[in-house]
Nucleic acid binder design. Structure first.
Length: 425
RNA sequence: GGAGGGGUGGCUGAGCGGACGAAAGCGACGGUUUUGAAAACCGUUGUCCCGCUUUGCGGGACCGGGGGUUCGAAUCCCUCCCCCUCCGCCA
């Protein structure tokens, strides 16, 4: 959520920011009108409340009698007037909040300006694209041939965009999860977390999925619990409604979770294979920092996700996202894409974002500056470290051999009981 | 799921219709004392919002959340949530 003060004090900057993010700048005037109306009503109501407080105390001290009864009668009407003003103020406030909650974050001034992914900028490419002296297969052929992926049975159990992983396939994914968590905990200083996979709506509002993107989420209607679309949601909400000490920042959290997405907005896209399912595994990285170091932490975060790709020997590239391609809550973001030789695609395995104080406002997560007065909102960052099925795709497709086996990256072998390659079962 | 108990400031815990943003203790911070420290003593010690003559002043709100009763609610009523104890069920 954007700071209402920005709308009051720097409306042009907000208009410009929204325009860059591909949002209609007219919302600024609506917000300003609503804000003015709300403040007017609050001022009137509070003036009457001050009077009521004063007179009610007097009533308490008065002897019973005519004067007292008259004052009580008068305060009764004041009370009614307050009630009326408050309900009008509340309505204006609700309208204002609804609007504010729909608006995306404003891009960082250094982010490349552009309307969509075409304007993204490749920052660096690492590793050599794998060469083959045969035609490399896509994973949706390799997987079934190796006996580690079953698409038909996935559809039988749960419908389209679901699949079954088996044998060395599921084991590889499990090994990757363990290895990634170990890497982030021991090499990068993260705290491992095992969060709930279903959360209340406040968490989704906090992280920015609600109210705007409810269509992409699964929900248990009976208890109003929602399946998380990413571990970013529970991790970012860990300190919701809390005031932290600056000395405790930055906080680094990593978690493995399954992620659930209805993918309504990507209907018809990436329907083959395991690139885009309704359920997938991910190891997530989340940071809470003070504002002055969040940009530096973003660069570091990208590096931490890159470490995963590098250690696995996967060719990858880093893109800085344009203002129009960034996600709702981000003010600056980088994607990491690994090369998948079989389907001939760069696969997004991580999106690292600095959300500034956008999520912290929604979550009301603040910190007390060391030696300073008052409180401030933290900055939140998140990035995948990294998405599992797409990593499996890249390992399978880049590691495939003419004989149909797949050579595994060395770092993962100890987690696979020393196995060097996946062979057809 | 059933029965009972409970949610008050950083913590412990009093208050059960009016002078309560809330006693007391602990903790924390500042000061006095001390060669230094401890102890003792004195003082300070929440958050959010609105307004203004904007490093200050005035006002409003917050005692789990929401609603109600009342001139006035931490205190009374309703409702939801969470925690504890016992019973039931169960990975």
């Amino acid at each position: 959520m954007l700071d209402i003060r920005l709308f009051r004090e720097a409306p042009d900057a907000v208009r410009e920011g929204l325009r860059k993010a591909g949002e209609a700048p007219e919302a600024v005037d609506q917000v300003r009108d609503l804000d003015e109306r709300w403040r007017g009503l609050v001022a009137q109501s509070e003036q009457l409340k001050a009077e009521r407080n004063r007179e009610s105390q007097r009533i308490g001290r008065m002897e019973p009698g005519q004067e007292r009864e008259g004052l009580i009668r008068r305060m009764r009407t004041v009370g009614e007037r307050i009630k009326e003003l408050d309900s009008r103020a509340e309505a204006a406030r609700a309208e204002l909040d609804d609007l504010l909650l729909q608006l995306p974050n404003i891009p960082h001034p250094d982010a490349p300006v552009g309307p969509d992914e075409e304007a993204n900028v490749v920052v660096r490419t690492e590793g050599e694209l794998t060469e083959f002296d045969f035609e490399p297969k896509p994973h949706w052929e390799l997987g079934p041939e190796l006996g580690i992926l079953d698409f038909d049975r996935g559809a039988k159990l749960s419908g389209s965009r679901f699949y079954v992983m088996m044998r060395q396939g599921s084991r590889l994914q499990r090994a990757l999860i363990n290895w990634m968590l170990d890497l982030h905990v021991s090499e990068h200083g993260y705290t491992e977390v095992y969060p709930p996979f279903v959360v209340n709506p406040e968490c989704l509002l906090g992280a920015g999925q609600l109210p705007k993107f409810s269509g992409n989420l699964y929900r248990d209607a009976e208890d109003d619990l929602w399946l998380i679309p990413t571990a970013e949601v529970p991790l970012t909400n860990l300190h919701r409604e809390e005031i932290l000490e600056e000395a405790d920042l930055p906080l680094y959290y990593t978690a493995y979770t399954a992620c659930f997405r209805r993918e309504k907005m990507s209907a018809g896209k990436d329907v083959r294979g395991i690139k885009r399912g309704h359920q997938f595994d991910k190891v997530e990285l989340v940071k809470l920092t003070s504002p002055d170091r969040s940009e530096a932490e973003l660069q570091k975060l990208v590096g931490e996700a890159e470490d995963v790709c590098r250690a696995l020997g996967l060719p990858y590239r880093v893109k800085e996202l344009s203002t129009g391609d960034m996600s709702f809550a981000a003010q600056r973001a980088y994607d990491i894409e690994v090369w998948a030789a079989g389907c001939g695609e760069w696969l997004e395995v991580s999106s690292c974002s600095n959300c500034g104080d956008f999520q912290a406002r929604r979550c009301n997560t603040r910190y007390r500056p060391a030696g300073g007065e008052g409180t401030q909102f933290v900055h939140t960052l998140n990035g995948s470290g990294i998405a599992l099925p797409r990593t499996v795709i890249a390992i399978l497709e880049n590691g495939q051999q003419p004989d149909g086996t797949v050579v595994l990256p060395e770092v993962i072998r100890p987690y696979m009981g020393g196995m060097e390659r996946i062979e057809p079962q």
